[in-house]
Amino acid sequence: MTAIILGIIGILLAPVLGGLIAGLDRKVTARMQSRFGPPILQPFYDVFKLFGKEPAIVNVWQVFCAYVYVASAAISVGLLFAGGDLLLLFFVQAVGAVFLVFGALAAPSPYSQVGAHRELLQILAYEPLIILVFVGFYLATGSFKVADILAHNQPLLLQMPLLFLVLGYALTIKLRKSPFDLSTSHHGHQELVKGVLIEYSGPYLALVEVAHWYETVLVLGLCALFWHTSIFGMAILLAVTYFAEVLLDNVTARMTWRWMLGYVWGIGLAMSAVNLVWISFKGA
């Protein structure tokens, strides 16, 4: 029962948190470029305005995909807060990610199509890494359940520092930050303009945006599991991680998908393997 209540609290709280994080992100980015930037609540104003717009859709598939995307993102956050199974959570969020691609493929626009292909490649790049991180959790704590991981008595960062970096890759891809803002980026100055999101507009774009906030919270939540022993440590770890993401966004150019696959798979898989081997030897 507590688990369900916690899950519902998570689902309700996550968009607020995600929106605030997005607002802070924009403010810090603006400061790094020596601008004032928008108010912190700007993402909420944007989304409310989008919800108020007249819907204009290419076809119903797109609408369906937007709903599935936001639902799966919300459920996966709920599962995380409820202390559910990490593997289940992984599959639920993967369904959402795939439906985002379907939504983009449903529109015949070439930009949307290319964006969908790139998004698919990005999913291919980060999903194996997330799975390996979960395996790491299992090896370190003996369970895939979040509740059991939380019961573990020492910060996991000490045991799996490399896996934390690997999760950082996934976080950068999920947050659509440079150098991985390939399929779509926060500003439209990209060769695909808005890539996967180009054919979404009005309320459906707002749904996608809310789903994006959920995903931000989800990946940050996974990062938080690395220092679950104290709330304070968790907050510091998240703040440092997110600041590093914003910094990275501002100090790198956008790369190409060929580079991304090589780099993320090569270095990400190598780091995970080293860390996993290390945990199992230490455990044995």
Partner: peptide, 14 residues
């Protein structure tokens, strides 16, 4: 670019 952005973060608005 790191040096530049951190300088901006601490510095004045342009």
């Amino acid at each position: 670019m790191t040096g530049n952005v951190l300088r901006n973060l601490m510095g004045k608005y342009s």
